[in-house]
Amino acid sequence: MQLGTLALLLTQTANVLSQTALLFFLGVGLTLIFGIMRVVNFAHGTIYMLGAYIGYSLARVTGSFWVALIVAPIIVGAVGVAFEAGILRRLYGRDGSAFLMVTFGLALILGDVVQIGWGASALRVAVPDLLSGVVLLLGEPFPDYRLFLAGFGVVMAIAIWQVLERTRFGLLIRATSQNPEMARALGTDVQLIRSGVFGVGCGLAALGGVLASPLVTASLGMAASMIIDAFVIVIIGGMGSFVGSLIGAFLVAFVQVFGNFYLPELAIAFIYLIMLLVLIVRPGGLLGKED
């Protein structure tokens, strides 16, 4: 039986939302780090992969995907904080290429660490039992897990937004991002904020990695295929913009899902076309500030 148009639209839209969630976790971390530290984190894709692998081991040891989902981002976040405090901190004041090189180096090292520690084969992460079923959307089976992804994405996006808007930590982040000198003069420990934000950004990427692993397995190829999407999202949305990363993630997911369906030959080119257009019309990104 062919799919009805409505059923098709519905399942594809649900797909867009679940993919948006995965891409958002990656993009928002990257954009937060850039906004606060002016650091383009080249290791972001590898951090995402590290999250998936650590999540795999945690799920195996504890037998629970949920433990992995909570603990893996914390561990990876701690790695991020250590990296910021140990290495990045010494480089503020240098030009951007120093950060590019050092984060690229981190990507290479972590990539090898993962290969040595976990081996080259892809590793299976099962969908948690609770979500292994399907719901019928107009008669079409749709995985519970993907619905969960979409819902979890919305919840997390609201949570991050509220933290940035309503909490003191969020206020300090915004202050530091707008004017670090002034923030420091007013008694904010800017150094601490930077470490914290780098850790949170890495933790969010790891969260994305854990969530993606039941869909794609934990594999060494994860890093390379995701980092490009992450950069596209951030460039479209605007470096440093939270809402921008949400919009960027949605656009990329939309083009990947619907583009691949209706215009498969052009779908890949289309994403870069959008990026190019944004760069021409608004060089700072849709919601970014030019500088």
């Binding site: 954009t31 937060l32 906004g35 606060i36 002016r38 940035l164 808007e165 982040i173 915004r174 991002s177 707008q178 004017n179 605007g238 470096m239 440093g240 913009s241 939270f242 809402v243 921008g244 700072g284 919601l287 970014g288 500030k289 500088d291």
Partner: peptide, 9 residues
């Protein structure tokens, strides 16, 4: 909202 610096750094 944006967390980019408003002024050029």
């Amino acid at each position: 909202m944006s967390i980019t610096p408003k002024t050029k750094r």
